[in-house]
Amino acid sequence: MTELGNIILETRDLTKHYGGVHALEGADFTLRKGEHVAIMGDNGAGKSTFVRQITGVEQKTRGDIIFDGKPVNFTGPLDAREAGIEAVFQTLALADHLDVPDNLFLGREKTKWNWLGPFRRLDYKSMREDTLEALQKTGVKIPNIRNTIQNMSGGQRQCVAIARTATFHSKLTIMDEPTAALGVQETAQVENIIRTLKEQGEPLILISHNMRQVFDLMDRVVVFRRGRICANLDIRNEDITGEDVVAYITGAKTQPEYEDAA
């Protein structure tokens, strides 16, 4: 496994408490460059919480995050994004009353007349062109990109959110249940996007409940249970079946090295 190269992301003892709720407890996690890792676990296992700590959306209670060789302490999502982490959040993070280009470029709009500070002018034309290009590349179907997001189907909205991460070149992509609302074709498209990222050697963390998808696409599975990591499974090289993974998820099995955690 080490031939995949050095490490892009590492967390040590990453912990998040919401008041008395220990949503994430002592997570030690590593991701190598070019590696695609799935995070699996039951509802409420702490998967999204883990993502929110890495992406600077929330402030961790304890622990260290080392990204691209440097310890990082993101104070907000913009920090993480500028460092090169792109994420599709489970809640999508779209603005309903804005159209597709607006959403794609939300928070990093292309602008002109930058001397005007906060009142600088938006470069609508260039953003529209880039949007069309991005959607074409990802094979997303949207009738009119100038329609507001609110009237689009769940799948189309999801596609916009995914196109957003795929548009901007990043060092790490994180997708939190990206295909949960998608039809067969759209799911296939998203899986194609993931394959493309793999070919380009871009590392990815995928949160998914879909066993087939995980076994088709991912190199490794990390299982979360009640806020703790309870298994780290090399599904490419070891003889591991879906049933094994389910056993880890439900708590029927725990890997010896994580015994004390469970």
């Binding site: 992406t55 959306v57 907000g76 999502p77 913009l78 994004r81 959040f89 809640t91 999508l92 993070a93 779209l94 603005a95 939300l106 928070g107 990093r108």
Partner: peptide
């Protein structure tokens, strides 16, 4: 929330 997650201050 979306605005915040997108990095808008």
């Amino acid at each position: 929330d979306a605005a915040r997650m997108s990095g808008i201050n």
